[in-house]
Amino acid sequence: MGSALEKLCDQSFGAKRLHMLGVYMQRSWVILTATCLCLLPIYLFATPLLRFLNQDEMISELAGTLSLCMIPQLFADGLNFPIQKFLQAQSKVMIMAVVSAAALASHIFLSWLLIVHFQLGLVGAAASLNIAWWILVLGQFAYIAMGYCPGAWTGFIWGALRDLGAFARLSIGSAIMMCLEFWFYMFLILLVGKLKNAVAAVAAVSICFNLFGWELMVFFGFNAAISVRISNELGAGRPKAAKFSILGVIMSSILLGLFFFALVLVLKNVYGLPFANSPTVVHAIAGLATVFAFTLLLNSVQPVLTGVAVGAGWQWLVAYINLGCYYVVGIPIGYRLASKFDLGVKGMWTGMLSGVALQTLILIGITLVTDWNKEAKKADSQIKKWGGSVIDER
Rank of each mutant, 00 (worst) to 15 (best):
Q26W: 00
F341W: 15
L298M: 13
L180C: 06
I333S: 07
C38W: 12
I172L: 15
L44Q: 11
F341V: 07
W133F: 11
S339T: 14
S106C: 10
S354W: 05
F45A: 06
I115E: 08
S128T: 03
T360H: 04
A203V: 05
N269E: 13
V282I: 15
W372Q: 13
E375P: 08
C179G: 10
W158Q: 13
R17Q: 12
E57A: 15
F81M: 07
F187Q: 15
L114Y: 08
A145H: 13
L305C: 03
L296E: 06
F212T: 01
V308W: 02
A312Q: 14
T154N: 09
A152N: 00
N373S: 12
Y185C: 03
T295E: 00
G344P: 02
P274H: 08
F109S: 12
I366S: 10
I144K: 05
S128H: 03
L138I: 13
E61V: 09
F259E: 06
T33W: 12
L50F: 02
A293S: 13
V329G: 02
I157R: 08
I108G: 04
Y43T: 07
S67I: 12
L8D: 00
P72A: 08
I366F: 13
V264K: 01
S252R: 07
P41V: 15
L53H: 10
T295S: 15
G387E: 01
V310A: 06
V329S: 06
A126W: 00
Y271R: 11
D77N: 11
E6F: 00
I321Y: 03
S253Q: 05
A63P: 00
S111Q: 10
M251P: 08
S111Y: 07
N299H: 10
G313Y: 01
N223S: 10
M70G: 02
G257N: 02
E57T: 14
L363F: 05
G355M: 08
S106Q: 03
W316Q: 14
V318S: 03
I189Y: 07
L39Y: 13
K378C: 15
A198Y: 12
E57W: 12
A46G: 08
Q84H: 09
G388I: 00
I95E: 06
R51M: 10
V390C: 09
C9T: 04
Y326M: 02
M146G: 06
F182A: 04
I364F: 12
A160F: 05
W153F: 10
F261W: 11
A46L: 11
A89D: 01
R238E: 13
A132D: 00
A376I: 03
C36T: 04
L234C: 03
A236S: 14
K85C: 00
S100P: 02
P274E: 12
I172E: 00
L323Q: 10
S231M: 01
A338V: 05
S206A: 09
L74I: 06
F182N: 06
I321M: 10
L255Y: 12
F141D: 11
A160I: 05
R169L: 15
F244S: 12
C38P: 08
T367R: 09
D10Q: 11
